[in-house]
Amino acid sequence: MEIAAIFKYLYELLASTGLPSMLVDIIALGFAAVVVFLFLALVALFLVWLERKVSAHIQQRFGPMRTGWHGWIQTVADAIKLLQKEDTTPANADHPVFYWAPIIAFVAAFMAYVAIPFGDGLIVSDLNIGILFIIAITTFTIISLLMAGWGSNSKYALLGGMRSAAQVVSYEVPMIISVLAVVVFAGSLSMVDIVESQAKIYQWYIFRLPFGPIAFIIYIIAATAETNRTPFDIPEAEQELVAGFNVEYSGMKFAMFFLAEFVNMFTVSAIATTLFLGGWQGPLLPSWVWFLIKTFGMVFVFMWFRWTYPRLRVDQLMEFSWKFLVPLGFANLILAGWMKSSGWFNW
């Protein structure tokens, strides 16, 4: 069953109603956006459950078991619980800033999916600056972190917000550099073009030695830091002294930050899949199934990291990024450029 064919059919149906083509396009895009949004909301709920089960089995215990078969309704129960919590605002908090921070985080997380290909032909809009757009949008989360830290009117939140903003900014650079290495090789910023240049399995960028695996590893490390996961989860660590930027948030606002974090994790996994693992390419199964398999595989790897490694101290984290990842990333980029231009390893 080809999902792309279904969408195409619906689009034809809409176009045949005789509305002006601009309006048809807008309605079609709106519909696609709504579909993607609903899909992602479900994915976020699923990911929360998956995280709990994966962490539980790594620790040789069961995880949620009571709410439904193996606890699959647990996230719904948690969402209902969060919905009914009191929505507190600290005294003397900066109200507009405090109010808009989780919303910006949430919107930024979801907006990146405009340009991510879920399968062959399943992309909301094939921008020809695809990957650049995605990176620009995911950088919005820094603004929301700073807003949350400032608006909470608590010195701990401020410190936590500053630290996490510093962390995210300093790991944007290696992430962009590793992405650029792939872009140089693919010759285009468009996500669909990048996927199509990996038509065969040996053409996947992760296998294109020697720059591919290095770019992949740099990307994974930077992505873990971007999404504030261990070993880079200083902003969220309860064991540390300063509790992080979302300490004053409760109820639905907290739920927005929480969901935004999981959606971000899915985003970086989707980008890793598209850029390094061949996107939706694969034999036999439909393209969107391959995409989901690969993306959930990457999500699983991120979860595995979280439950195995201790966390780095803030200054060690920054040192690692600026003194190690950035030079390595630049060297890798130069290598990739040279490989592309000289024709070596260019299969």
Binding site: Q59, Q60, T230, A237, Q239, W307, T308, P310, R311
Partner: peptide, 16 residues
């Protein structure tokens, strides 16, 4: 110790 440093899993292994 491992819990304080952020690695949560060895805590459960030790307690097992």
């Amino acid at each position: 110790t491992s819990l304080d440093l952020g690695a949560i899993t060895p805590f459960l292994y030790g307690f097992r």
